[in-house]
């Protein structure tokens, strides 16, 4: 079985994003970029399935600018066998990304596709579900556990009320939630090895996909600022303020 994982280059999770002063977009100049944290979890899961002897090959795919090669190299340093970059400088939105990944899947024919449940930049939480729809495959979203048995995939999902377990036919799409696993740290020798692993670069046009955005960004703004309040001396004063000033208890 081949596994394909999708990885996105996104703002580092420790960085606080700010709108540009003219409101035309988010200021990403000189901002640290990393692999989207949920995608790291997806990569880790693919590697673990391979290490358990249940996958013959793992492939990472990314959609975006040239710099996404670094993100793919990180995935390969973690253990993925090879990378595919669909290179574009366009603003690619989830539907377009799903179509591009589907085109790669049509060529590669994996039986399992794992993605992060959402990217921490646009917080869309769409690509995995859209990909599953386009492929006509089942989807195990927000996964915190994945097990292969008798040609089916059992997925434990984090839902609002607790945990749900579902069985999916294969091939299937899985999106990773935070507690699926803890991604490994990349070791230096593996970073060197990753540089020699194959990385193919494709263009959206080669795949015959129209990536024209469907949503236009009208403007961005900072949310209403929240003023820090006061420090209270002790519990009595706190309760007094909550009762008599804020009137919330």
């Amino acid at each position: 079985m081949k596994i394909l994982v999708a990885v996105k280059r996104a703002i580092d999770y420790n960085v606080k994003a700010r709108p540009k002063s003219d409101g035309s977009g988010v200021d990403l100049a000189n901002v640290k970029m990393s692999m989207n944290p949920f995608d790291e979890i997806a990569v880790e899961e693919a590697i673990r399935i391979q290490e358990a002897g249940n996958a013959s090959e793992t492939i990472a795919v990314s959609v975006g600018p040239k710099q996404c090669q670094e993100t793919l190299r990180t995935a390969m340093a973690m253990g993925v066998d090879r990378g595919v970059l669909v290179e574009t400088d366009e603003d690619v939105q989830p539907l377009a990304v799903a179509k591009l990944i589907k085109a790669v899947i049509d060529k590669e024919q994996p039986e399992l596709v794992i993605l992060g449940k959402q990217a921490i930049d646009d917080d869309s939480n769409q690509t995995g579900q859209m990909l599953a729809a386009l492929l006509g495959w089942p989807q195990g979203t927000f996964a915190c556990g994945v097990a292969l048995a008798d040609g089916k995939l059992e997925v434990r999902r984090e839902i609002d009320g607790g945990i749900q377990t579902i069985n999916l036919t294969m091939p299937a799409v899985v999106t990773a939630d935070l507690r699926l696993n803890e991604p490994r740290y990349v070791k230096l020798p593996n970073i060197m090895k990753a540089k020699k692993k194959p990385l193919d670069v494709l263009a959206p046009a080669e795949l015959g996909i129209d990536v024209t955005p469907r949503l236009t960004l009208v403007k961005v703004a900072e949310p209403p600022a929240r003023e820090g309040g006061v420090k209270v001396e002790d519990v009595q004063q706190l309760i007094d303020k909550l009762r008599n000033e804020a009137k919330v208890i």
């Binding site: 606080k16 700010r18 988010v26 646009d122 917080d123 960004l217 009208v218 961005v220």
Partner: peptide, 10 residues
């Protein structure tokens, strides 16, 4: 978007 640090109008 961006963990609520930016509000986008689309």
């Amino acid at each position: 978007i961006y963990a609520g640090n930016v509000i986008a109008t689309v």
